[in-house]
Simulated scan of single mutants.
Amino acid sequence: MSINPQVSIVIPAYNTAVYIGRAIESALKQTLTNIEIILVDDASTDRTLAIANSFTDRRLKVFTNFENLGVSATRNWAISQAQGEWIAVLDSDDWYAPTRLERLLQIASQQHADLIADDLYLV
Score class of each variant (00 low, 15 high):
T74L: 04
N34F: 05
I3K: 10
L105H: 10
F55Y: 07
S8Y: 08
D42R: 01
L32I: 08
L115A: 14
N68L: 08
W95N: 03
I38W: 04
V40W: 06
L60C: 00
D46M: 03
L32C: 09
P5I: 05
W77I: 08
V40E: 05
E25L: 10
T33E: 02
P12D: 00
A78N: 06
L69T: 14
L122M: 10
L120N: 13
Q111G: 15
I116Q: 13
S72L: 14
Q110W: 15
T64G: 08
D41W: 00
V7A: 08
Y96H: 02
T45R: 13
L32F: 10
N65Q: 07
G70F: 12
R100D: 09
V123S: 06
E25Y: 07
S109R: 14
G70A: 12
D41A: 00
Y121S: 14
V123D: 06
L104H: 15
R22C: 08
T48D: 03
V18I: 12
I107S: 11
E67V: 14
Q81Y: 13
I35P: 06
L49Q: 02
L49M: 07
L28V: 01
T74G: 09
D94S: 03
G70N: 09
Q110D: 15
A73K: 12
S8W: 05
W95R: 04
Y19Q: 05
V10A: 01
Q111T: 15
I37R: 00
Q6M: 07
S72M: 15
A113I: 15
F66T: 12
Q83I: 07
S92F: 00
T74D: 10
F66Y: 13
R59S: 03
L105I: 12
S109P: 14
W95A: 03
T33C: 05
L69I: 11
A78M: 04
V7Y: 04
P98Y: 08
K61R: 13
R47I: 02
T31H: 10
L115G: 11
S8C: 09
S44H: 06
R103M: 11
A117H: 13
A73Y: 08
T99Q: 10
S72Y: 15
F55C: 03
L120D: 14
R47P: 06
P5L: 04
N34S: 05
V7P: 04
N53H: 04
N65K: 11
A23E: 03
S80L: 13
I3L: 13
L69C: 09
S44A: 02
E85M: 00
A43D: 11
H112D: 15
L90M: 02
A82W: 09
A13M: 01
S44W: 03
F55L: 06
A43Y: 12
W77L: 11
T45D: 13
T64F: 11
E102T: 09
A17E: 05
A88W: 03
D41T: 01
